[in-house]
Amino acid sequence: MSFINYASREINCKIVYYGPGLCGKTTNLQYVYQKTAEDAKGKMISLATETERTLFFDFLPLSLGEIRGFKTRFHLYTVPGQVFYDASRKLILKGVDGVVFVADSQEERIDANIESLENLRINLKEQGYDLDKLPYIIQYNKRDLPGAMSVEELRRELNPTNVPEFEACATTGEGVFETLKAVAKLILVDLKKGK
């Protein structure tokens, strides 16, 4: 649910990065944070455990510039990927405008990807959203690892509805901004339709 403020001429949208544990959601945000100019970003917040696993969420506010005199802001959130944090994951999805599903390309993580994607669908439904009607993008992360499955195989398992998909290596930043731009664009197009 975006927030349009005519008084301060701002539009705020919320993007959530979803995916199984250790798939690279936080790494995506960290790369965006590192590569964004100081004046376009706010502080990145990570609510993580002592071992750097996301406990509640990561948060990164980005300011992209103006459209028709309106400042366009995106709030990027990640969810905790570990299965037992499901209650927290549901909370982060509240008011979401667009979703990036970060898949781990390694063969041994395919079941975790499928489980997380089903979990995303269920949790969205609980909040009254339909994944097929939301701006939604898949990122195949960790393409650089030797155990990575082919994109065709991943697509067959994870992207039956043919949503936009991107290959990425979040640690080096490859594909990170392409993913972000694509989901932001889908959200703005959605807003344009006046949904």
């Binding site: 649910m1 927030f3 349009i4 403020n5 009254g128 959203y129």
Partner: peptide, 8 residues
């Protein structure tokens, strides 16, 4: 959509 856009 479950929540309408908040407009100010």
């Amino acid at each position: 959509m479950s929540n309408p856009t908040l407009v100010m």
